[in-house]
Amino acid sequence: MNWLRISWLLYKINVRARMQYRVSFLLTTLLASVVTVAEFLGLAVVLHAFGAIRGWNVWEIGYLYGVLMTAKYLYRGVGSAVNNFEPYLVNGQLDQLLLRPMPLLLSVLTSRTRMVGGELLQSLTVLGVCLGKLLGDGTAGWSAIPLTLLIVCTGTVIMFAVGLATAAVGFWTTRTEDLSVLTDNASTTASQLPLSLFPDWLRTLLLTVVPFGFINYVPAMFIIRSEWGWWTIPATGAVAAMSLGAALALWRVGVRRYQSTGT
């Protein structure tokens, strides 16, 4: 499709523009390439010391972590602009994008690029190693592989939907950074661990308002733990679809309220 070609062109352009500042580019890439693994190693050390947390061993938690982080970085790669939407509203950057003959959301998404290759590689490594171990143990069957790929996709959609809804709230509040600390950073950190560890209110929150529980925990209860039934998979898909639909609707209403900035 033509828009796909233009998106690819814009992506390449953004990368080239980034490359203009070589040192900054190299530093960011270098830093990014160690952060995820370092973060997981920290988590793994703690888990190793305790052996298991309420029946979840290191590999299972690593699986949750791997799915979550892969979804997160896929979302960051595609939706970097949505994730950092505040400047578009504060500086009126959205004005220029509204003058392009492209669907607005596509204009927004292609206006900013974050290269996530390094982070993705690490997340996938963590995910691959943990899934491999679980397959080897016989804890999970071979169907876990396609199912994992599927939930990485639905997880990315859920991440994107929550990010988009957060950005859309900016049409009312202009500022979204505080909100995004709650919906993005805090929720992501919480979802690295099994939801069963959390108090009821937090678990409910992560299954409804910010449905990050459906990124990894809910489907994992079927895929690697076989505790819940197959229904978790269609449920996950439905949650992803509904989140996206709701976020798009909110976005559409929000755009009509866009106030731009004075000169």
Binding site: T173, R175, T176, E177, D178, L179, L182
Partner: peptide, 16 residues
Amino acid sequence: ATTLPKAGRLKAVRTL
């Protein structure tokens, strides 16, 4: 309609 912005903690949520 400009909502008068709130200051301090969780200002985005409170402004909303």
